[in-house]
Amino acid sequence: MPRSKEQFEDMRNATREKIQLAAMQLFVRQGYGSTNVQEIADTAGISVGLLYRHFKTKDHLFDELVAYAVEGLKRIITFFESAQSPIALMEQFVDEIYTDMINGEELAHLLILINQSLIAGSAAASQQHDDILRLNARLLNATAQLIRKGQQLGEFSSGDAQEMATLFFASIQGLAQMKVLLKNNFTMPSSSTLSAILMKERK
């Protein structure tokens, strides 16, 4: 029986996801510059020709993965800019980070991929590079604002909010790197440990 249009679309999406997953794993392990299209195709279990039917170039594939990661940054900014309680927002965010880090590698890979895009990404992606820098600045500013609000409410520790925001995200980025490097020997700190630099000690 001939396949339906929906079945063909499902197959196409499944192949595209296999390519993206393979590329992300290789970019993270080897770096963007050291990964070639043949390796991506082999890891995905497909031919190079089929890969090129989905992505015109390695740059195109890399940029699409980075764009997906960028959407995640935008969601975090929107989340932190909401009117909810600062401590409730931060606790929810830290719990989600903890859960994502212990249950899989996607978050760690996406964080590393964003860094790679700033350091050694596609030469044609200068606009994307600038967009990521602006988004990172917005994310730190939104986090600092949330910390200041929490400090005013007596929920967060005292200190320079911008420095605290920078240290908080540097620790998450560092944990992502360690997870990839240490693999099964990696131990994810608890949610309370991860947020200790921000939260006021509860009596």
Results as ranks from 00 to 15, higher is better:
3 R>S: 00
3 R>N: 00
4 S>Q: 11
4 S>L: 14
5 K>W: 10
7 Q>I: 03
8 F>G: 01
12 R>M: 01
13 N>M: 00
14 A>P: 00
15 T>I: 03
19 I>E: 03
20 Q>H: 07
20 Q>R: 09
27 F>M: 06
33 G>Q: 15
34 S>Y: 12
36 N>V: 15
41 A>Q: 09
43 T>L: 11
49 G>D: 05
49 G>T: 13
51 L>V: 10
53 R>T: 05
55 F>V: 05
63 D>S: 13
66 V>S: 04
67 A>M: 14
68 Y>K: 10
68 Y>A: 15
70 V>T: 12
70 V>N: 06
71 E>M: 15
73 L>G: 07
76 I>D: 05
82 S>I: 09
85 S>W: 04
89 L>H: 11
89 L>M: 11
92 Q>H: 06
93 F>G: 07
93 F>D: 09
94 V>Y: 05
95 D>F: 03
95 D>T: 10
97 I>M: 13
97 I>W: 09
99 T>W: 03
100 D>G: 08
102 I>S: 13
105 E>K: 10
106 E>A: 01
106 E>Y: 03
111 L>W: 04
113 L>H: 05
113 L>C: 07
118 L>M: 13
119 I>K: 03
121 G>Y: 11
122 S>I: 14
123 A>V: 01
125 A>C: 02
125 A>W: 02
127 Q>H: 03
128 Q>V: 09
130 D>T: 07
133 L>G: 10
136 N>G: 11
142 A>Q: 04
143 T>A: 14
144 A>F: 10
145 Q>I: 00
146 L>W: 05
147 I>G: 09
147 I>H: 11
149 K>R: 15
152 Q>I: 00
153 L>I: 06
161 A>P: 08
162 Q>G: 03
164 M>G: 15
168 F>I: 12
169 F>K: 12
170 A>C: 08
175 L>Q: 06
178 M>R: 06
178 M>I: 08
182 L>N: 14
182 L>G: 07
183 K>E: 14
184 N>G: 01
185 N>C: 08
187 T>E: 13
187 T>M: 04
189 P>R: 06
190 S>I: 09
192 S>M: 08
194 L>A: 01
194 L>V: 04
194 L>M: 13
195 S>W: 06
197 I>L: 14
197 I>K: 10
197 I>T: 15
197 I>A: 14
198 L>V: 09
202 R>W: 00
